[in-house]
């Protein structure tokens, strides 16, 4: 099975974000980046499927600046076979253009399965998988947290409101991966050494005109300081009153 995994370089969850002077983007100075954590599940699942079948290939692809080579190398170090970087200097916030550019590239490849994280933790759009499936004419299952492959057919489980849904689909398919699907492996040191010898192709991303524009970006308001209402059992009524009338959570 030929598998393509779409990944993204995102600001690390523990990095400090500052808004740039234009008020529409983040200031890249001093920002630490990492592989989108949900994409780790997608890479791991691709490797597990390849190991299960004992055949096929895993290709990782991303759209971004040259810096995203680092995240591609990370995926190669874990065991992916080859990587592609679709270059652009734009900061893309439009899920539809991302999907269109990725679909254009995927159509040029032999591909039976596309895996991606459920969403990227920077823009949290959660649009890629269904958008891609539409472009490619593939089946689509989102937020998969259990997956089995037998006789060329996927059986996926996903959590929906108050229940667990079991869905099946044939290949070709686009699946978005949710936490719990698997336990991502660490890249091992031999893998890291091997990664630099694996192919990493670069091509300009074919991005359509964006349909969305970020108008402004602001940090969430700082959390107000906590309040101590008293000490011991005597202060319980005051606490209940505050929870009921001030915080309105009871």
């Amino acid at each position: 099975m030929e598998i393509v995994v779409c990944i993204k370089r995102v600001p690390a969850s523990d990095t400090t974000i500052k808004i740039a002077a234009d008020g529409k983007s983040i200031d890249p100075a001093g920002v630490k980046y990492e592989l989108n954590p949900y994409d780790e599940f997608a890479i791991e699942q691709a490797l597990l499927i390849k190991e299960q079948l004992g055949a096929g290939s895993v290709t990782v692809v991303t759209i971004g600046s040259k810096d995203a080579q680092k995240e591609l190398r990370d995926a190669l170090a874990r065991g992916a076979d080859k990587a592609a970087l679709l270059t652009t200097d734009q900061w893309i916030s439009d899920g539809a253009s991302t999907a269109a550019a990725l679909a254009t590239w995927i159509k040029s490849q032999s591909c039976d399965l596309v895996l991606c994280g459920r969403q990227a933790i920077d823009s949290d759009n959660n649009q890629l998988a269904p958008n891609l499936a539409t472009h490619l004419g593939f089946a689509c299952i989102t937020e998969v947290n259990k997956l089995e492959l037998a006789d060329g057919k996927f059986t996926a489980e996903r959590d929906i409101e108050g229940a667990r849904e079991v869905v099946t689909c044939p290949t070709p398919a686009v699946l978005s991966c949710q936490k719990g699907l698997n336990e991502p492996r660490y890249p091992n040191l031999k893998g890291i050494m091997a990664a630099k010898k694996k192919p990493l192709e670069e091509a300009a991303a074919e991005l359509p005109a964006a349909g969305l524009e970020v108008v402004s970006l602001a940090l969430p308001p700082e959390r107000a300081a906590g309040k101590i209402l008293g000490d011991g059992a005597d202060s319980v009524p005051a606490l209940i009153d505050a929870l009921r009338n001030e915080a309105k959570v009871l």
Binding site: K70, R73, D74, A77, Y186, P187, N188, L189, I192, M193, A195, K196
Partner: peptide, 14 residues
Amino acid sequence: TEEERMVRDTIRSW
């Protein structure tokens, strides 16, 4: 080098 940082970061996470 990039590999050296990747090795370091892998062991650091582990």
